[in-house]
Nucleic acid binder design. Structure first.
Length: 809
RNA sequence: GCCGAAGUGGCGGAAUGGCAGACGCCAGAGACUUAAAAUCUCUUGUCCGACAGGGCGUGCGGGUUCGAGUCCCGCCUUCGGCACCA
């Protein structure tokens, strides 16, 4: 039979229209079928449009979603736009367009591109974080956090990007520079909105045990939360001149067992103790000078020169080691950070590398309290099971026992207690920028900070002519006095609005919930919708969001659960992640490197199905892979071959006996590989099947049905078109997923490799029913085995049924 | 330094402890064609060999096993994350 030409340019738009007209991929909030919520990270609609990296995770989850629909699920597979953010604002400033206009334009382009790739998103549920009907609920959640004390304003040193002119969360500072622009980051003291994510540190840690995330994702989150167990210990302070007792100084230590070895203390340069005891510190100028010098260092400088310890003694105030009763000095040094623990430490130079270096540098005493090391040449830190010495009542104990005993001893005397410490810090939640959600708080001179009543939401961003960032570090909103000046919702008097906006992470912290009920004007989502959709069944996204978006959104969701607004504590049942697509030169795709691949060009030249196939075929899904144009051509070639399978079409619903095992094996492989995200081997198996069909030169309708159904989630347009051309019935999206028959995979006889001493030397054909015992009894007489043994005695014969024969001679 | 991932042909990559290199790319040969492209068929880890066959081969060194790319111990390299976290 002659086959018409394969023309993606024609058939792809055709099927995209059909799906849309048939509402083939719209999810129902009311269905008897089991539900399945598949989620991909919604993109930031940048001015550049989609690049080749975007379709990788989208195609992967599209495959899963399409397969689930065929398996009979009511699938929710939505898409939206995380559209607030700096690049849009910067672009708008540069080109003098309103960010809203830029955003709309970018979204249109992204939507069109996504549609041209044939993703089966439910477009009736599209969300846009910059839409007031959306950010109204972002603001609402913020108010709930505020009302429960989890949003607070605090004057604290923040990371400030000198180039973006904006404060950053710890998570946004990478290697001491701004994650976004690479600009220098310095510390600035500023009043900031903070979210108390630390209150959820343990919850977020425990929650990980209940979900199916890749181990490396769990590990990275655990690391970031950074739980460590130890003790809080109070050290009595004294006026070193008069001997007068002062307030005790609290430290956190993971090694309370080494208390007898604490020969001095160190506080962070910013520690309040310096100002509190200003009149007792006899070298105040030197101490303050040191503090000022370290505050001028950027984070980058601090880490660059990390190893050279600096510091200054705080004279006039001393501490008492509670175990030895000895008076010990207090130093200030920037190797101790204000942001972790209490900003003060007890230094045990014998058993901590940093303390050891510092003690060496400033000639402070080093006292060994755990035996086994050579503390003259290095700190002895490898002490899992060491024995305590020079430690009074702890002498002779092993480290774990000593920890228990000293902690109990401290508790008894009211000098300390067991303590768990986390590295996780509270989330800096304000940005001094225009293009973000306004924070719905009013500052009243009489009533203080007053939350906006919920019925006044959304608090709209004001229209503005000028939204340039200011050099003073104030938000551009601060200059819009008509908007800023308002009345207090509490007393009705004059008051000012909060002028900072929320970070980009706000809108993305709950967007998946909005998909469940996107047009609801009364709630962020109805209880019914939340109950019906429940947890996201499968969420795929980038590793780079593990400690940002993924952690933040888990935090918000736990909070919503705690206030009864969400039915489950954890939002995502399963989380996987994809590798990046690199440029052909193996480097990250970027405009500046000139190695960006635009999916539009690939679609124009090869078609969307080829793009999808290639992105899935190029390698292991979780690994970074460079783009290869030749590889793309190979995938197009495969689809051409699939198209021409039509030339072998013959009637008959059955599958020919000769290729039956092959077909069923392929069904099994593809079905299982999609679940394991082994898309490349699933495709390889379909390629093999097509090769077999070519060799046989026969494709019954039954064979064709199976092949097209399996391939449909990967290459939906071409498969639908062939299906229609061959008159195979209702479109594939409405067809059931193929099943394999295990019986078809079983053969009577099997060819088995024979090893001699572990090396393959020959092969024998054996009945599959042959048992291990029987084989090991009878095989030594087999002529082929005899030949391979070539007269030498067979000491042992191992038969693994269906796998291998191994001779030991 | 700590945590995580990886190291296999010319290339991208396959392989529940059981025939290493599936599938694809590149390259080569043949068929078709006046010719080329496209297509179809075949070859293609490496060394020796005309073939049969054999030697060597999964970053390095050991080990466990009848059998190791896969498991264990010790290293090296690359990539990602964290990093003076007490």
């Amino acid at each position: 039979m002659t086959v018409p030409e394969y023309s993606p340019r024609v058939i792809e738009p055709k099927w995209q229209r059909r799906w849309s007209q048939a509402r083939a991929f719209e999810a129902s909030n009311d269905s008897d079928r089991p539900k399945f919520f598949a989620l991909v990270e919604f993109p930031y609609p940048s001015g550049e449009g989609l690049h080749a990296g975007h379709p990788r995770p989208y195609t992967a989850m599209d495959i899963v979603a399409r397969k689930r629909r065929m398996q009979g699920y009511n699938v929710l597979f939505p898409m939206g736009w995380d559209a607030f953010g700096l690049p849009t604002e910067n672009y708008a400033i540069k080109h003098r367009v309103h960010p809203r206009v830029v955003t709309q334009r970018n979204i249109s382009r992204f939507r069109k591109q996504c549609q041209s790739i044939g993703f089966s998103f439910d477009w009736t549920r599209e969300v846009d974080t910059t839409d007031p009907n959306y950010y109204r609920w972002t603001q609402w959640i913020f108010l709930q956090l505020y009302k429960r004390g989890l949003a607070y304003k605090s004057e604290m040193p923040i990371n400030y990007c000198t180039s973006c002119k904006v404060g950053l969360a710890n998570e946004e500072v990478v290697g001491g520079v701004c994650e976004r622009c690479g600009g220098e980051v310095v510390r600035r003291i500023k009043k900031q909105w903070m979210l108390k994510i630390t209150a959820y540190a343990q919850t977020l840690l425990d929650g990980l045990d209940t979900v199916d995330f890749l181990d490396k994702i769990k590990a990275q989150q655990r690391n970031w939360i950074g739980r460590s167990e130890g003790a809080g210990v109070d050290f009595q302070l004294l006026d070193d001149t008069t001997g007068e007792a002062l307030e005790p100084l609290r430290v956190f230590t993971t090694r309370p067992d080494t208390l007898f070895g604490a020969t001095y203390m160190v506080v962070a340069p910013e520690h309040p103790l310096i100002d509190d005891y200003a009149n007792r510190i006899t070298n105040l100028e030197a101490v303050r000078g040191y503090r000022d010098a370290s505050s001028r260092k950027s984070d980058f400088e601090r880490t660059e020169i990390a190893k050279d310890k600096t510091g200054v003694p705080i004279e006039g105030v001393a501490a008492v080691n509670p175990a030895t009763g000895k008076r010990i000095p207090i130093w200030a040094s920037d190797y101790v950070m204000m942001g972790y623990g209490t900003g003060a430490i007890m230094a045990v130079p014998a058993h901590d590398e940093r303390d050891w270096e510092f003690a060496r540098r400033f000639d402070l005493p080093i006292v060994e309290v755990v035996a086994g090391g050579d503390i003259q040449s290095a700190a002895y830190t490898d002490v899992e099971d060491g024995e305590l010495v020079n430690s009074g009542f702890l002498d002779g104990l092993r480290v774990p026992d000593a920890k228990r005993k000293i902690t109990a001893w401290l508790v008894e005397r009211g000098l300390g207690e067991p303590k768990v410490q986390y590295k996780l810090r509270d989330w800096v939640f304000s940005r001094q920028r225009y293009w973000g959600e306004p924070i719905p708080i009013v500052d009243c001179p009489r009533c203080g900070l007053v939350p906006l009543p919920e019925d006044q939401l959304p608090l709209l961003l004001p229209e503005a002519d000028n939204y340039l960032p200011t050099d003073t570090g104030e938000s551009p909103l601060a200059a819009m006095t008509d908007w800023v000046n308002t009345t207090c919702p509490c007393c009705g008097g004059p008051a000012k609005r909060e002028t900072d906006t929320m970070p980009q992470w706000a809108g993305s912290s709950w967007y998946f919930l909005r998909y469940m009920d996107p047009h609801n004007d009364d709630e962020f989502a109805s209880k019914k919708a939340l109950d019906y959709w429940g947890m996201v069944d499968w969420y795929n996204g980038g590793m780079e969001h593990t400690t940002l978006h993924l952690l933040y959104s888990r935090f918000w969701h736990h909070f919503l659960y705690d206030i009864g607004a969400a039915p489950y504590a954890e939002p995502y049942a399963k989380r996987t992640s994809h590798g990046m697509i690199l440029g052909a030169n193996g480097e990250k795709m970027s405009k500046s490197r000139g190695n960006v691949v635009n999916p539009d060009d690939v679609i124009a030249e090869f078609g969307a199905d080829t793009l999808r196939m290639y992105e899935m075929f190029l390698g292991a899904f979780d690994q970074a892979i460079p783009w290869s144009t030749q590889g793309v051509a190979g995938c197009r070639r495969f689809l051409d071959r699939v198209w021409r399978v039509q030339q072998f079409a013959v009637s008959g619903e059955g599958i020919p006996e000769k290729i039956r095992a092959e077909v069923h094996g392929c069904v099994k492989k593809v079905t299982e590989d999609i679940e394991r995200m082994k898309f490349n081997t699933a495709i390889a198996s379909m390629m093999t099947l097509v090769n077999v069909i070519y060799t046989e030169g026969v494709a019954t309708r039954g064979t064709l049905r199976t092949l097209l159904a399996l391939l449909n989630p990967f290459a939906p347009h071409i498969t639908e078109e062939i299906w229609e051309l061959q008159g195979l019935g209702e479109p594939i999206y409405a067809q059931p997923w193929p099943k394999w028959d295990p019986a078809a995979l079983v053969r009577d006889e099997i060819e088995i490799a024979v090893q001699v001493g572990g090396k393959v030397r020959g092969r024998v054909t054996l009945p599959l029913s042959l048992s291990k015992d029987e084989a090991e009894r009878t095989l030594p007489d087999h002529p082929e085995i005899q030949r391979l043994a070539s007269g030498r005695p067979i000491r042992k014969l191992i038969y693994v049924p269906g796998k291998i024969v191994n001779l030991v001679l």
